[in-house]
Amino acid sequence: MIKLVNLSMNYQGKQVLENINLEIATGETMVIIGPSGSGKSTLLRLIVGLVRPTSGEIWIDGQEISQLKEAELNQIRLRMGMVFQYSALFDSMSVGENVAFGLRQHTSMSEAEIAKVVSRKLRMVGLFGKENIMPNELSGGMKKRVSLARAIAVNPQIVLYDEPTAGLDPIMSGKIDRLITSTRRIMGVTSVVVTHHMSSAFSIADRIAMIYGGRIIELGTVDEFRQSQDPIVQQFIHGTKTPGLLARRRTKTEC
């Protein structure tokens, strides 16, 4: 379980997150939406301890991590995987080495066992047999999938996704959405997904949280979200302030 209590973050005096309270249950898929620059990535970076909050608490499975030393944090990070917005693959290593990296560093598995796990994870993301390709030969969508395979190689209990579908075509986006869902189903992971795409959010989320101006302005299930009366939420879902506006405008110009 992930629990954020009164979490605030500012960078050199610039307030990015303000009093965030959020609880994410084990096995749940929480989608975070919000305009760019609203602090979504910052929220993920706080959860993995890449940055420290200005104030507030971050609880991961009953342990408060915001004041932990890097070495102690590393113990907790072993249970987490993260898919970065631009994949962040190690570009000096092949696809196979990227996926194997965590296993080589943290387990005493033999090379044969590692190769088996790598092959299985690559199959899961639809990249079976692509071990020897270098990251710079991959398309954006393939990089994202390798990044996911790397994140789940060590069987984490929590997987964080930073805009996994940004910059991808709709077909690839759909594929990634299904991967997120199947990863959750197969491995039972808790997922936190930051996204811009409302269609993604609606298809994968158990609950959605919307961040705006550093605060969570709406939190609820997909249905609750669709029916939200908040004009900002409506604008984000439909691209306009009120759902009917676009249609009305269109009929006007047609007259």
């Binding site: 970076r45 993995v48 890449l50 890097e70 590393n74 113990q75 990070r77 072993l78 987490m80 995987g81 993260m82 970065f84 917005q85 631009y86 962040a88 693959l89 190690f90 570009d91 990296f101 965590g102 560093q105 943290h106 060590v154």
Partner: peptide
């Protein structure tokens, strides 16, 4: 390119 962050998230 966030590879350093990726290292840290992977507990390295």
């Amino acid at each position: 390119t966030e590879q350093i962050d990726a290292l840290r998230v992977m507990a390295i």
